[in-house]
Structures are given as structure tokens and as C-alpha cells.
Design a binder for these strands. Structure first.
Lengths: 186, 186
DNA sequence: GTGAACATGTAACAAGTTACATGATTGA
DNA sequence: TCAATCATGTAACTTGTTACATGTTCAC
């Protein structure tokens, strides 16, 4: 999915500036399954205004630069609907963490342990953040998405906790090799 | 993580051709948390051979073009280890499906139902595929990764199944609007 | 007085994908 | 005979990120 559809989707929930869209994406529940930068949002918004998918009203502010508040148009809404038509592409789940775990045996045991612990902690934070989203947004679609996120993160935490002993201990002989490699890397 | 590290990582499990690396990524357990195309793998392999991270031995074949079998070198292994040093970036989970669900109320009810059903089916296939990986790879890191994948996919399926009624029924008044939008979209 | 938050925007750059080019074999 | 599998490779193209540019206010 492209930035255009993303912007259209957020604007469907209400008017917003480019700045606000970015914030919603990185702080709201969007956060966990989408991302976008200013460098892509602003140009997208400008082009969409040219295409009449959104309208822009400028709001002067004291001290701060003018706000450009965007609203989705009827044309924008139908564009959004047709972009959402058809089968959505399968989810993409990219994980450097898992890649590291896959190659755990060539890495120092303490590094693995640290990364592992950190991951659990990160997931707990993500979970808390997601649960706070659940209270705010009473919108049905939002509720569903947040529920999905919670279910998955809880499963991940659960798995990591019950596998912790296995992955951390299961490596007696490898530590020397890892040491050699780490030294050679410098 | 870049293609280089990915290739180095797969070569760490044994020699392979560019073609085989691609297959492993799209069929093996790598599949679910990484992706790469020929257009990125082949150039990466060539450059890494120049940098002495891998060696290449050409194997003539009848009827088929020559195979280029790559092996990771000691230098490659240390490069891999140092690339895996440091905290891995947080997992990225991108989901068009969830985005569609978020905006379910502006889309035709039957479309949502179809997409929803398809998603459950796809996840079941993914789960089966992942479970078959579990038998093949007896490697500890692989076992862990596959276990993680299974845990998450099962959680997703579970959530989708128990929420099915809610998301599909909870939309009586919206259908008309959706119809209008769908028409306008054409 | 220093950094964060507010607010927009552009240009250079990175990274990878898609499509193309080539060509034999094998199974339906 | 038509598609798929095996096998490699390049060039054009997409898409988006990073870094920069600009400027105020508020809190510490």
C-alpha cells in the first residue's frame, strides 16, 4: 500500500495536517502495521490536492508556520474505496530479531541473552501502548485492529518467555567459536 | 537488514547458488520474516565475491546454464557476526489486511466477509507450511524461529475466528453508503 | 541557552523490485 | 505445445528515507 492510500485512510477519520498524520502513524494504533515519513507524506498530500482527492484549507497561527488542514473529498473517498478493493497483499512481517536468533550459534551467548531480554521488554511496552489505544478509539474497525495487535503481541511474549531457558542455555560449545569470530570482526 | 547479510546468513548454513538462496527465502522458514528478489541477490553475491566475503565455484551443467555455487569465507563469517552485533531494529509488521479492516465501514459488507475468510485460509496454509519446516530443520535456531512463527500465526487465526461474527455482522446501516461509494469508484 | 514540539517542504540518495533477455529440459 | 523449473544477469524504475533548510515558542 502506498502513502496516498494511507493518507486518504487517516483523513477518512477526520481532517488533519501532514504533521498530524505522521503523528498518528507513529503514535496511534497505525504505528504497529504501517509507517511513513514527512518526506513522503507532504508531497503526497500536495499531489492529492492537485488531483482533487483532498482539499486544503490554510490556517494561520501565531508564532508557528501556517497549518494546512486537509479534508478528504468525495472523489478521495471513492479512490480510497477502490484502492481497498481486491485481495489485500499478504502481511509482511520482517524481523531482524528472528534472523539473529536463527544465527544465535555464531554469536556471543551474552549478546543473545541481552537481545532476547530487550525484545521481551520492547514487546511489553508495545503491548501497553496498544492497550491504551483500545480505550481511546471506540470505533469498531479500530477496536478490531487493536485486538488483533494485542493477540499477536501477547502470543509473542508468551512464546519468548517459555522458550527463554532453551535458547539461552542450549549453547555450551559454541561460545569459543563466537569469541573468535567477534575478535576477527574488529 | 540488507541483502548482503541475508545471503551471508543463508550461506552460513551451507553452500548455495543465488537461485537456491531465493528459493530458501521464499519457500523455507525464512519466507515469513524476510524477502529478496533475484535482482538484489545476484548483484550482492557478485560484489561479495569481490570483497572476499564469499568464494564462487562454477559448476558446469548439461542443458542448464553453469551453476555458481557460493561458499562463505572466514571474512564473510566475521562480517556476518558484526552485522548482527548491536540491537536489532524492532520488527516491522505491515498489514494491508488490517488497514482494510480499519476502514471496513466504507467498504461493501460482502467484500469484507470475503477478504476475512480468505485471510483465515491463507493463515492456515502458512501455518501448515511452517509446521512442515519444523520437521525438516533440526537446527536449534531454526526450531526457535519456526516455533515463534507458529505461535504468532496460531494467535492470529484464533483471534480472527473468535472475532468473525462481530466484524461481519456489526454493520447494518453502512451497507448503503458502501454501495454508493463503490458505484462512484467506477 | 538548549532542546523539544510545532509545522512544512525539497533534493539527494538508498535499496530493492519489475521487467526483460537467454536458453535447455521436463511433464501435462 | 505450453507452462514450469532450473539458472544467471542487467537496466530502468519505484518508492520511500535521510538530511537539510527555516522559524517560533515553551519548558527546563
Amino acid at each position: 500500500m502506498n502513502v496516498r492510500t494511507l493518507c486518504l485512510g487517516t483523513l477518512n477519520f477526520g481532517d488533519a495536517t501532514g504533521y498530524e498524520i505522521k503523528k498518528m502513524v507513529e503514535e496511534g494504533m497505525f504505528n504497529h502495521f504501517i509507517e511513513a515519513s514527512y518526506g513522503s507524506i507532504y508531497p503526497a498530500l500536495t499531489r492529492m490536492a492537485d488531483d482533487d482527492l483532498v482539499t486544503c484549507r490554510e490556517e494561520a497561527q501565531e508564532g508557528k508556520p501556517d497549518k494546512k488542514v486537509y479534508s478528504i473529498t468525495a472523489k478521495g473517498r471513492s479512490e480510497l474505496a477502490s484502492a481497498l478493493q481486491g485481495t489485500p497483499k499478504p502481511d509482511k512481517f520482517k524481523s531482524e530479531f528472528l534472523f539473529v536468533m536463527l544465527l544465535a550459534d555464531i554469536l556471543p551467548a551474552d549478546h543473545i541473552a541481552a537481545v532476547y531480554g530487550q525484545r521481551i521488554e520492547d514487546l511489553r511496552i508495545e503491548l501497553a501502548q496498544m492497550k491504551s489505544c483500545a480505550d481511546t478509539g471506540s470505533h469498531p474497525g479500530g477496536q478490531f485492529v487493536v485486538g488483533y495487535g494485542i493477540a499477536i503481541i501477547e502470543a509473542a511474549i508468551g512464546y519468548l518467555e517459555e522458550s527463554r531457558i532453551g535458547i539461552t542455555t542450549d549453547r555450551t560449545t559454541e561460545t569459543e567459536t563466537a569469541g573468535t569470530v567477534a575478535t576477527a570482526a574488529e
